[in-house]
Each structure stands twice: as C-alpha cells, then as structure tokens.
C-alpha cells in the first residue's frame, strides 16, 4: 500500500506492471470523474456501507456526552458534558470489570500469543510432509467452529458428569462445578482460547519460516552451529518481523478480550472474575437501556485500544524497526 506521495510527472505510457512508476493522469477532479465515472460508481455502495455502518456509529459515540432517549435521535437530545464519564469513573463495578479485562487480556496475551510460535517451530522440524499436514489440518479445525459450539463443548467437558470431573473422581477428589467458580473462570477462558487459536495462529509463522534463506542455515552449520543454535540465531530472527507485527495487532485488541466467548461462558456467579468491560457495557446498555452511560464506557475502551496500537507501533518501530505503517 505504499504509494509515492510526490506526484510523478505525467506520461502517456502506462507504467509496466510491478514497477513503482505509474501513470498520473492530467487534469483535476472533473477530468478524473469524466474519465473514471464508471469506477467511481462501483465505489458508491461500498462507501455507503462504510459511512452508514462504520462512520455513523463512530459519530454516534457523541451520545456518551448527550442525553439519549430510545426512539429519539441517534445522536441524542441535549449535551450533558462529562456526566457519564464521571459516572463510570466513580462506579466501583466499572473498576472491577476494568481490572478483569486487563487480567484476562494479559493472560490471553501471555499464553495464547507465544504458543503458536512454539507450535510453528515444532511443526517446522517435522520431516514427514504427510504427518505435518495432518497435524496442521487437525489443529486448524477449532478455528472454523462457531464460538457457540466452542462454548458448548467447553461446558460439556467441564460438566459435573464430564470428563474433567470424571478424572477428579477417579483420583478421589471432590467434583467441581467449574463454571460456577469465579476462581476457575480465567483458567477456563484462557485454556479454551488456547485450544481454539493455537493451530490457526501458526499459519503466518509457517509462511515466514519458508521464506528464510537456506544459505543462512548453511553458513550457520559451517560456523559449527547445531540445530538449537540455528534456531536461535537464524530461525527466530527470520520470523521476528511477523512476531512483532502480530504482537502489535494483538496489543491493539487487548481490551476487546473475546467478548462473545465471555458472554457465553460467564454467569452471575462468576461475574467477580469473568465480567469484562464489553460484557458490562452490553448489560448496562442493551439489557438495561442506559445507552449513554454504556456508550461512554465503550468510547473509553475504543480510545484505549487505539492508543495501545499506536504506541505499540511506535515502540516497535523505534526498537525493532518493524511497524504496521
């Protein structure tokens, strides 16, 4: 998506495919419209989509600062300033769910981010192609399932009569109603997330691994490096840009912890650890109808998310030299 900012001198012949030079046609907007109106017309419906369903909701966040009445204007009725912001800042439940979000996000990042890298490295060491493909196919599978199915499977596994409790019983322990214990929620959530994402997460790393130059391994071998040191000094640096890029993206979605999965797995008994910002604002807004208050929380969450991506991007550009833009 890198396009030269300076306009190249107009030339009549089109630039060849693959070259960075390209035709910059003469004339202003009017000429462009006359020449390319058919192209622009193709963009009309998609643009309408972006404006209505992406940008209007962004503007719709003003209801965080306005009184909103259901059935009234999408943009609210009258300014109330920072009333709703002050309201959630002094709401103890908000701080509970904020902490829960940070903890759950951090645990997910800690456990679910490195695992695909390890799995990709292990897969990369398999010489048997058929076996490799089989392991890959199986491990990708959970990615294709509806989150409802994943939640259903999780519940069945952890049910009183499910396999986990069967094991507990055979070992002579008390059975546990896992999904009603706040202490267990984080473990359950992170495990289920690992199960669902580890396989699919390897794809981009495996792709990056195939692009590493074989001559680098050759040179490392000549220098006397064993498999382990080759991994350390050739493989890891080779996939580092991919790791950093995905890390930035993951940090950006840090606060948006699997809202749907939490919504499916939690219940009032586990709220103390399971309730996160997004589920809280769902209940406050959609279930209880306090739209302005919920919008204020949502806006806060979105802004933190944006700030996180931007700062992660800057930090990685300064330190590793890789960035998203």
């Amino acid at each position: 998506m890198s396009t030269a900012k300076t306009s190249t001198p107009p030339s009549e012949d089109r630039a060849e495919r693959g070259s960075t030079r390209r035709r910059r046609p003469r004339g202003g907007w009017r000429a462009a419209l006359r020449r390319d109106w058919q192209l622009y017309s193709l963009a009309v419906l998609p643009l309408l989509f972006f404006v209505i369903f992406r940008y209007v909701p962004m503007i719709g966040n003003v209801i965080a600062f306005r009184r909103f009445e259901p059935g009234g204007s999408v943009l609210g009725e009258a300014w109330v300033g920072l009333r709703y912001v002050r309201m959630f800042l002094s709401d103890p439940t908000f701080w509970t769910v904020f902490t829960n979000t940070l903890v759950l996000g951090a645990l997910t990042l800690l456990f679910c981010f490195p695992l695909p890298i390890v799995l990709a490295l292990l897969l990369n060491e398999i010489r048997n192609r058929k076996l490799k493909r089989f392991v890959q196919s199986v491990s990708y599978l959970p990615h294709f399932l509806s989150i409802v199915i994943v939640a259903g499977v999780t519940m069945q596994l952890l049910a009183l009569d499910g396999p986990v409790n069967q094991i507990l019983r055979t070992m002579g322990n008390e059975t546990i109603i896992f999904l009603q214990q706040p202490d267990w929620f984080r473990t359950i959530y992170v495990s289920s997330e690992m199960w669902q994402t580890v396989g699919w997460g390897t794809i981009l790393y495996l792709a990056a691994l195939t692009t590493i130059d074989d001559q680098l391994y050759e040179a490392a071998r000549i220098d006397g490096a064993g498999r382990w040191r080759q991994t350390l000094h050739v493989t890891l640096p080779g996939i580092l840009p991919t790791v950093v890029t995905l890390l930035i993206l993951n940090i950006g979605t840090f606060l948006a912890v699997g809202f749907e999965k939490v919504l499916l797995l939690y219940n009032p008994l586990t709220y103390p650890t399971a309730d996160v910002i997004s589920t809280y604002l769902y209940r406050v807004g959609v279930v209880s109808g306090n739209f302005s208050y919920a919008a204020a929380i949502g806006l806060f969450e979105a802004l933190i998310g944006l700030a996180l991506v931007l700062s992660a991007n800057v930090i990685s550009r300064r330190t590793v030299g890789t960035s998203l833009w």
Partner: peptide
C-alpha cells in the same frame, strides 16, 4: 482519490464505533 478510499476502509480496522452506537443505529 484512491488513497482516500483506501484510508476510509483501513481506519475502520483500528477504530470502531462500538457496540452501543451500532445497536442504536
């Protein structure tokens, strides 16, 4: 105007209206 059209789409990857405004809309 291609770059603007690209940016309009790209920006929505990093910032979204959120649940409540979408629901209201």
């Amino acid at each position: 105007g291609r770059k603007t059209l690209v940016a309009i789409a790209l920006f929505t990857m990093f910032f979204s209206g959120g649940l409540i405004p979408n629901y209201v809309l």
